[in-house]
């Protein structure tokens, strides 16, 4: 990582509150489908690699950019790097992907890509993230895994 921050003064967004508990969620017999908000709640706490802020606070992930098809077993995420030349885009995408792999049942096919038009080398990053073997290989690399794990650690200040 270079010593200079690429985006030293990012715009910070307000965090959404806790999901409100509904009566049906407390009812034993109702089946709650996995929905967009649930996926978003999984992702919102991921830390940014550069800032002591979460991806939600930087508006990198948004609930409207999460697509879920629970019966069809697919999840699609679009994430928006804070600046078009962000060199961390791949790393952020990888963190999102790993977090979902760890948090979702393995029946889901997970697709993570950059919001169209928000990054200079969009296609290259998308291709890397979609390639299963490259993702697996990246996670074999212990220094890369270390950074990803740091992004996924719960913050305690």
């Amino acid at each position: 990582m270079s010593n200079r921050l690429e985006n030293a003064n990012p715009v910070i967004f307000q965090r959404s509150g806790e999901r409100l508990l509904t009566a049906s969620e407390e009812d034993e017999d109702v089946h709650d489908p996995i929905d967009e908000r649930e996926i978003f709640d999984i992702l919102q706490s991921i830390n940014d690699p550069e800032h002591p802020l979460s991806l939600e606070e930087l508006n990198v992930v948004e609930q409207v950019r999460v697509k879920v098809d629970d019966p069809g077993n697919t999840v699609g995420i679009e994430f928006t790097p804070t600046i078009p030349h962000c060199s961390m885009a791949t790393l952020i995408g990888l963190s999102i992907k790993v977090k979902l792999l760890r948090s979702l049942p393995d029946r889901f096919k997970i697709d993570v890509h950059i919001t169209p038009g928000s990054h200079a080398s969009e296609d290259a990053v998308n291709k890397q993230l979609a390639d299963k073997e490259r993702v697996a290989a990246a996670l074999e690399n212990s220094s890369l895994l270390e950074v990803v794990n740091q992004c996924l650690s719960t913050r305690n200040i």
Partner: peptide, 13 residues
Amino acid sequence: RGEWFLLGSPGGR
């Protein structure tokens, strides 16, 4: 599960 994944992994705990 997230916490257990971090256990014993580089950068985790």
